[in-house]
Amino acid sequence: MTGIEILLLIFVLVGVLIAASLVRAVSPFIINAVVGLVVLFLAQAVFGFSVAVTPIVLVIVALGGVPGSVIVLVLSLLGIAFVP
């Protein structure tokens, strides 16, 4: 192996390690967002709650997860916000 190939191998290894640490750091947020969106979907599909799905609702649920979806559902049921 030449010096350039060794240097390139080191750069690729460092890149893989950085990517793995980013995935480990972000995965709880992704799981939280997916579970929150599933709760919102099930509330609409199974229980018949009507919520206006807007980009703001999606951001709240994605960032808040299950508590965010519960807040959106309660506000919609009370007629305060997110009413279709």
Rank of each mutant, 00 (worst) to 15 (best):
T2S: 14
T2V: 03
G3Q: 11
I4C: 00
E5C: 00
E5R: 04
E5G: 04
E5W: 02
I6K: 12
L7Y: 10
L8Y: 11
L8D: 12
L8V: 12
L9Q: 11
L9V: 02
L9D: 12
L9H: 01
I10H: 00
I10D: 01
F11K: 10
V12D: 03
V12T: 09
V12Q: 01
V12A: 13
V14N: 02
V14D: 08
V14I: 15
G15F: 08
G15V: 08
V16R: 00
V16H: 01
V16D: 04
V16K: 01
I18P: 03
A19E: 14
A19C: 06
A19V: 03
A20K: 01
A20E: 11
S21D: 14
L22M: 11
V23H: 06
V23Y: 11
V23L: 14
V23K: 10
R24N: 12
R24M: 13
R24P: 01
A25N: 04
A25D: 06
A25C: 01
P28W: 14
P28K: 05
F29N: 07
I30C: 13
I31F: 11
I31H: 10
I31E: 15
I31V: 15
I31P: 00
N32W: 05
A33V: 02
V34G: 05
G36H: 09
G36V: 07
G36Q: 10
G36M: 09
L37P: 03
V38F: 10
V38K: 11
V39L: 15
L40E: 00
L40P: 00
L40I: 03
L40F: 02
F41D: 01
F41L: 09
L42Q: 07
L42V: 13
L42M: 12
A43F: 15
A43Y: 11
A43T: 10
Q44R: 15
A45V: 08
V46Y: 12
F47D: 05
F47Q: 08
F47G: 03
F49V: 12
S50W: 06
S50P: 13
S50R: 15
V51T: 07
V51A: 08
V51W: 04
V53R: 12
V53M: 05
P55W: 10
P55H: 05
P55G: 13
P55V: 07
I56Y: 08
L58G: 11
L58W: 10
L58T: 01
L58R: 11
L58M: 10
V59I: 11
I60F: 04
I60Y: 09
V61T: 07
V61P: 01
A62W: 10
G64V: 04
G64I: 09
G65K: 01
V66F: 07
V66K: 06
V66N: 04
G68H: 01
G68Y: 00
G68S: 05
G68P: 00
S69R: 04
S69N: 06
I71A: 12
V72S: 10
L73R: 05
L73Y: 02
L73F: 01
L73W: 01
V74F: 06
L75Q: 11
L75D: 05
L77P: 00
L78Y: 10
L78M: 14
L78P: 00
L78N: 13
I80V: 14
I80K: 10
I80Y: 09
F82V: 05
V83G: 07
V83Y: 03
V83T: 14
P84L: 03
